[in-house]
Nucleic acid binder design. Structure first.
Lengths: 195, 195
DNA sequence: CGATTAACTTGATCCAGGTCAGGACAATGA
DNA sequence: TCATTGTCCTGACCTGGATCAAGTTAATCG
């Protein structure tokens, strides 16, 4: 299945609506395929996030770096997820985040201005957008709650049950950072959970 | 200015579009005014969040209660904000949250099904929804980052500079809980920040 | 292949922030 | 009015998880 076929299926499935031939032509005309090698950056801190990318293959992490050089992973993204710093993308302000490929990455990307067009002209696309932003809101709400009221163990258990494939796919120090933990602490938690 | 005038102004301002007379009639027909006294609940854990409310007057908090009876404030809401557990409201699942009036509260409320109608028929309403969901996405992104990578002091300073009016309006223990802190810790932080 | 470099583990120590306890002022209410 | 209840402060102590350090295993690459 080609990249665009995967993409079209995704849109139709999420939105519950069909794409017309015209819709597809429009999307194909304005989403560009982009490939990044592992460790390459999709977005660098300080730059405006001009593109939003739909991940066809591979994975990435969104992270910040604090004054001490400490990296902080906010998001791990895999196939069929969208890649962007939405704040920067929507407002066209310089980003505070970095987005880096963790595996060789292939995305279909487009700009803010073009997304506006899709929203106007493609009903399935705007239906998709509504549902995605709902999902994001829900996911972020959970994440904030987890950060404030769950212990390290609980956050890890949560990840194990909700995203077990992440454990196989990402190095443990990325997972630790995503959970807001030091690698040492995660290592100890895992050790305990085997007993 | 009547409640609906406030509401209409808000929609027009946020969306950048005007409401027609028909639009207004439709909104007035399906948004119902609801008043709650201080300490009354807009939503109780376990119930489905059937209504979304637009706050005309007053304030509220969204919080969870853990096994130990410890309350955890996730959101503080004031005039011109929307009140709902979006997860429950969109998915019609039982809510994990409580929403309680912190001051006497007046909202204009409507149901999920009616919101769908507004989105379909009122362009300003759907434009508003897009912008609000962008803002939510951005705000949530920031809150996740703050939760994971800021210290207690930093989170407090952030609140002081972004929502100074919250400090005057809400009791300190609510603020503490919102910041993910014990009241004692917040009290000490405030003491230190005066020197 | 052997040599670097990255990923993971384990132990020892430290500290931000939580918990517990007590007291001082409001504010609310019979 | 005084009593109750809520809010805020302060001190003493405790603990989950960070940090530092050092060793082991696993990838990567010339």
């Amino acid at each position: 299945m080609s990249n665009f076929e995967v993409f079209f299926d995704y849109i139709q499935e999420i939105s519950g609506k069909l794409l017309s031939e015209d819709d597809k032509q429009l999307l194909m005309a304005h989403f560009k395929s982009k490939k990044l090698r592992k460790r390459q950056y999709f977005l660098q801190e300080g730059d405006v996030c001009k593109y939003i990318g739909f991940i066809v293959k591979g994975s990435a992490r969104t992270f910040t770096v604090d004054e001490k050089g400490h990296e902080n992973v906010l998001k791990l993204s895999v196939e069929n997820w969208w890649l962007a710093d939405f704040e920067s993308f929507y407002l066209l302000t310089p980003s505070r985040f970095n987005i880096e490929a963790l595996e060789d990455l292939e995305v279909l990307q487009s700009t803010n201005a073009q997304i506006e067009e899709f929203l106007k002209h493609i009903p399935a696309f705007s239906a998709m957008q509504n549902i995605i932003s709902q999902n994001y809101t829900i996911a972020n709400q959970k994440r904030v709650q987890a950060a404030f009221s769950y212990t390290a163990e609980e956050r890890y258990e949560d990840l194990v049950s909700n995203y077990p494939h992440f454990l196989k796919r990402f190095p443990q120090n990325m997972i630790a950072s995503y959970l807001g933990l030091s690698p040492e602490t995660l290592s100890r938690i895992r050790k305990n959970s085997f007993k």
